[in-house]
């Protein structure tokens, strides 16, 4: 018998089927067949072609929140506005910050955090929430991940107006750096998409995951410089550098406030994207076909 990972792989993929085998091993074996990777990739591409469907579903998800209210979509903007102003005034006092610098910083941070947390928390329910549709509809399951990301984008488009208002009021200087906003948003969405697929898959199988992620995101909110500035943390550079959310927030916040983006932020976020996609593609290939059974 051969040894090492190669031997193990061979043993896993070729050992006789007549032997009584654990169904979990059988499933994994089925999932690791090479065609499953092509199927997974095609599922993601086909999902993109159904964009009219998931765009509509995502829009409905957001509309659901303010249905039949008088102010309608403004409620999303207003609640973010109230939060930013209340916390801005309070923490501005506590930290002894100048409001004309602190408020735009806080507004940008909050809006970006909203996008990130929405993509992650929504991502956990990607497949769980679509249970009925997955079992009735022969559509690529990636459409539900697109749908979650898209509804996060729509909410972001509502919230960003708070930042515009604050930036206009305090006269935040415009510079060419603002052009970095576009690639930054794109890379964040790329990261959000793998998170929706990966956490959605994990949550469909293990129903504790959404709860774990939920409390983690809450903790991370306080660990990440959203209400406090990175400069307030003088000798803890490593603590900050190891926080992936710091880089994901900073990559977009810097150009929004007119600063040039830092190389380290881009490097970190690209690294997260590459690793995240590699892991997600592996698990999505192996277990995509089980989703319909899990939900």
């Amino acid at each position: 018998m051969t040894s090492g990972p190669r031997g193990l792989w061979k043993q896993l993929m070729t050992s006789s089927t007549t032997k009584v085998q654990s169904p979990l091993l059988q499933q994994l074996r089925h999932g690791l067949e090479p065609e499953q990777f092509r199927n997974a990739w095609r599922d993601i591409l086909d999902g993109w072609h159904r964009r009219e469907l998931w765009a509509t579903l995502g829009l409905h998800d957001v509309r659901q929140r303010y249905r039949r209210s008088t102010l309608g979509p403004f409620w999303i903007t207003i609640s973010m506005g109230v939060m930013v102003f209340a916390l801005g005034l309070l923490y501005g006092q506590i930290f002894g910050q100048e409001l004309h610098e602190y408020l735009p910083f806080l507004a940008a941070g909050f809006v970006i955090w909203g996008l990130l947390s929405e993509m992650i928390l929504g991502g956990c329910t990607t497949f769980i929430a679509a249970e009925g549709m997955i079992r009735q509809l022969n559509a690529p399951v990636s459409i539900y991940a697109y749908r979650e990301v898209w509804s996060a984008v729509i909410a972001f488009a509502h919230n960003i107006w708070i930042f515009f208002a604050v930036a206009w009021w305090y006269d935040v200087g415009l510079s060419w750096n603002v052009l970095w906003v576009l690639p930054a948003v794109l890379i964040l969405l790329l990261n959000g998409f793998w998170m929706a697929l990966f956490f959605g898959l994990l949550s469909a199988r293990f129903r504790d995951v959404p709860l774990i992620i939920g409390s983690l995101v809450q903790v991370l909110f306080f660990m990440t410089p959203v209400i406090w500035r990175p400069e307030m943390l003088p000798d803890r550079a490593l603590f900050l550098q190891l926080n992936p959310f710091y880089h994901m927030v900073e990559i977009l916040r810097a150009p929004m406030l007119g600063h040039a983006p830092a190389f380290e932020n881009w490097f970190a976020v690209l690294l997260i994207a590459v690793f995240g996609w590699a892991i997600t593609l592996f698990f999505y290939s192996a277990y995509r076909w089980r989703i319909a059974y899990w939900v």
Binding site: T17, P23, Q26, H30, I134, R135, Q136, L137, A292
Partner: peptide
């Protein structure tokens, strides 16, 4: 559901 491509069979 198998005919509709919703369930992918184990074998």
């Amino acid at each position: 559901r198998v005919l509709g491509g919703i369930y992918e069979p184990n074998e």
